[in-house]
């Protein structure tokens, strides 16, 4: 197998640079491309078609034109509400989760006896995922007689709010759960920090740079592609947040935690309106796409690539080139 592959890869040499790049590029992305076309692109467009249909899954879809979209924007109160809740959720929880993940990753990026233990401890909540156990657990922490209130009382703040079912605080419980499970971006930061060559730090310390300066001049710029990746991924994940809200509050109280994806799910499977759900999904995709585009557009100002993915399009400057020399 190895032989065959290296032959194919080697064969590229006789060709022009462009042709070789095409051949090699498609050779490496080939396996993905096939599956992607079949199992993602086709269902992808199927959902677009369904979004123009009245489809209850139990009988054949009927074409209804823009009906679903019109209904969403004109009649559906919860649609707007859930969208606003989701935006609030994303704009509060994602920055916090990322900053948190970065801080912890920095702390845990040391060689010390305790570090492996702490890593496990900080990562454990993320392993738990969205299981039923988490929902029970979280509801008990933030219940009226829960651990959180016990703690507040202990430090002298008397409090008897039932956080999980208070109409103003319920969303915060979900935000907090989302932040609590910051393990994934943390690990990616950690891997990113490992990739920064020690030589840079050595050079900086010879130059007499302090910790703060080193962080802003070396760590942050070198970590910026990773930060960018985390931001994009977390944003996508944040807009699609679903299980946390479903298992803990199921959208309540008073629909104040009815995040978009949860509402979509209820429409599609709870009320047998898959066509409507697909329309919601496409609107969501456009919204996420818009914000992702914004992040991508802004990236030239703050992301520094050694060799960036879109190299050759000549859009991004090699800002770090000078320092390396």
């Amino acid at each position: 197998m190895g032989n065959r592959s290296s032959n194919t890869a080697g064969n590229g040499r006789g060709l022009s640079k462009n042709a070789r790049n095409n051949l090699l590029g498609y050779f490496f992305i080939g396996p993905w491309l096939i599956m992607f076309l079949a199992f993602t692109v086709v269902p992808f467009f199927a959902s677009l078609v369904l979004s123009f249909c009245d489809y209850n899954m139990l009988s054949a879809p009927t074409f209804v034109g823009w009906d679903n979209y019109v209904k969403l924007f004109t009649e559906d109160r919860l649609f707007t509400k859930s969208l606003l809740i989701t935006l609030k959720f994303v704009f509060i929880s994602i920055p916090l989760r990322l900053i948190f993940a970065l801080i912890v990753a920095m702390i845990l990026n040391r060689d010390s006896k305790m570090v492996p233990i702490y890593r496990v401890v900080y990562y454990l909540p993320s392993i738990l995922g969205g299981s039923v156990a988490v929902s029970v657990l979280w509801r008990y922490v933030f219940a009226k007689e829960g651990v959180f209130n016990q703690f507040l009382n202990l430090i002298g703040i008397p409090c008897n709010i039932s956080w999980i079912s208070n109409k103003d605080t319920a969303l915060w419980c979900i935000i907090l759960l989302f932040i609590w499970q910051f393990g994934s971006p943390m690990l990616i930061f950690l891997a990113g920090l490992k990739q920064i060559p020690k030589t840079y730090y050595e050079a900086a310390s010879i130059d007499g740079a302090g910790k703060v300066v080193t962080f802003f001049r070396i760590t942050l710029p070198l970590l910026s592609p990773i930060f960018f990746f985390n931001l994009v991924m977390q944003m996508i994940g944040g807009f699609m947040v679903f299980s946390q809200a479903m298992i803990i509050t199921d959208g309540g109280p008073l629909n104040n935690t009815m995040v978009y994806a949860l509402y979509l799910y209820k429409q599609a499977f709870g009320y047998y309106k898959m066509g409507y759900g697909c329309a919601m999904a496409w609107i969501l995709m456009i919204i996420i796409g818009f914000f992702t585009l914004l992040v991508f557009k802004s990236s030239s100002a703050w992301v520094f690539y050694e060799n960036q993915i879109s190299e050759g399009n000549g859009k991004k400057k090699r800002k770090r080139g000078g320092k390396k020399a």
Partner: peptide, 10 residues
């Protein structure tokens, strides 16, 4: 983009 469509509709 494929990551931005909820799994439920696919």
């Amino acid at each position: 983009l494929s990551m931005m469509l909820p799994a439920q509709v696919l």
